[in-house]
Design a protein around this nucleic acid. Structure first.
Lengths: 293, 293
DNA sequence: CCCTGTCATACCTGGTAGGTATCAGTGAAG
DNA sequence: CTTCACTGATACCTACCAGGTATGACAGGG
């Protein structure tokens, strides 16, 4: 009996296999995705179920579906796999930094592409002036992708916009709060208003709200599909759409744009966020700098 | 070349091995703790370092110490191992619950032993009255151990006392806020005061503050070492110590005790907290019940 | 009724994890 | 200076098991 102890442990391989099957709901496709043959995959899952003493998949005629325990393992397994790859990435990033003078840890800061201009600039400048500042790599991320990047170790720290980003699972500090504005074509009648409400801009007949891409998919609606800010700026300038942004977006407005404050939009809070278990000195320095801005 | 792809992945075994060595700082002892011989352990760590392309340990004459990258891997690896065992535990707990009627997920609620009496009672009663309530197992935990229990899957949800527990890394909802009181022997001169300050109780000559155990160790100081509330209650009754508690501790005071509000003690906020990635319906129900108390 | 698509089973093979024996370096003690 | 004690590394071997191929069992659809 080699097992019988340590049944509360899973192997990385098992997590990867199960996740693939649970996502594909098809052993053949999952095996293909994993770059292996189907039979060993079937067997591995069976062994996993036997070891855990739990049935994870319902093998129906024509396909596979998850049991309750399977759903739990999919959730928890993804989190665990993220933690594992994060460990590998961060370790590798910290490596090689031992010999040349200081342990000059490189920090990766995830930032929503084309946001936080001013704040980011100030932060980087202030931090670079610190005596023992680490090198900071700014990693542009797609819409609301920062959470993933922190979780899987691509980034060490991120600037986030509550309530758009979820701070759940991270440590964070509040940096600033701002209102939101509607960005309209300069010539539009509504652009003349001193203020607007969300209701005012959410159904302007000729100006549907733009829809941002998130992981390649778009929320439903009539508006144009957008995946970068320049694109959006152009569509607004052309009088084809309207968008709602935090106040600091004024920094990149064009002459053809008009900004009108929204009275009832929730305030946007910018946070600096990082994995709760982080203990890096370099990170601590960056956070200190940020909160003292 | 079998590797060359997927270098950003670590095996559970490798994480366990490295963690053991990093904690013991001694290959022999680590191997013993892992129940294996020393040579394969040495080799495994070497392979790990080669795969990551990073040196993790400094092999000095007489023992081993961690490099910067090693420190990072120890931190991140512990988090990953916790996530892995949490996945196994929670999956197993969810198992077998598929067939009998509803997927009757069992929830484990971690509670600091002998705290939250009233609130806990109300919560359990209210939740049990819900139509599709899961079975809730109350898991008593030592001082400030709830975080670990959530992290490694022994618990699904916890009641925590900010600022004593750190909510970092979890999702949480605030349940109640209360002041703190000093609990003194009834006959003591200070017991006659209407209010006290922290300074007043922190150095009463004849009543040193009690020191709570945390993971078997005690903070330094002159006071008696305490590891359960009954013990403490008795020592206070005997006039040997004084303690500071949230207001709700009045529920378990003895006749020989006197409670005096503290004016400058930070308020204690009771939270219900859970892993941020949790998606369980049963958990959501419990949280909803808690916030509506 | 056959054909197709699905997952499971049977059997084989190679890589590798882990064991034992031993080496090699270093500090302490005599 | 020599020797001993204690450390981690190396050499070599074996057994296990992960993964491959071939095939079976079973269900639906034409």
């Amino acid at each position: 009996m080699k097992y019988g102890v340590a049944v509360d442990t899973l192997e990385t391989r098992e997590l990867r296999y199960f996740t693939a099957v649970a996502e594909e709901l098809h052993f053949g496709r999952a095996a293909e995705r994993l770059g292996m043959a189907q039979p060993p995959l079937s067997r591995a899952i069976q062994q996993l179920e036997r070891r855990l003493g739990v049935s994870l998949l319902k093998r129906n005629r024509r396909g596979v579906s998850l049991t309750g325990a399977g759903e739990v393992l999919l959730q928890e397994g993804r989190a665990a796999l993220d933690a594992i790859t994060a460990a590998a990435r961060r370790t590798r990033r910290a490596g090689g930094a031992d010999r040349p003078g200081e342990p000059r840890h490189r920090l990766v800061l995830a930032v929503k592409a084309a946001a936080f201009h001013e704040l980011l600039q100030k932060l980087l400048d202030a931090y670079a002036a610190e005596p023992d500042a680490a090198e900071v790599e700014v990693l542009p991320s797609g819409t609301c992708e920062q959470e993933e990047m922190l979780r899987d170790g691509r980034a060490d720290v991120a600037l986030m916009h509550a309530p758009f980003n979820s701070l759940a699972g991270f440590d964070s500090e509040e940096l600033m709060t701002e209102g939101q504005i509607a960005i309209l074509p300069a010539g539009h009648p509504l652009a003349a208003h001193k203020t607007l409400s969300l209701a005012d801009v959410s159904d302007i007949p000729d100006l549907p709200l733009a829809r941002w891409s998130r992981h390649g998919t778009y929320p439903p609606g009539p508006g144009p599909e957008i995946h970068d800010q320049t694109q959006l700026a152009q569509l607004i300038a052309l009088g084809r759409t309207v968008a709602v942004f935090p106040d600091s977006a004024r920094a990149w407005l064009w002459a053809e744009h008009a900004a009108v404050p929204l009275t009832d939009a929730p305030p946007v809070v910018t946070h600096i966020a990082w994995p709760a278990h982080s203990r890096s000195l370099a990170l601590a320095g960056l956070i200190r700098t940020a909160t003292q801005l």
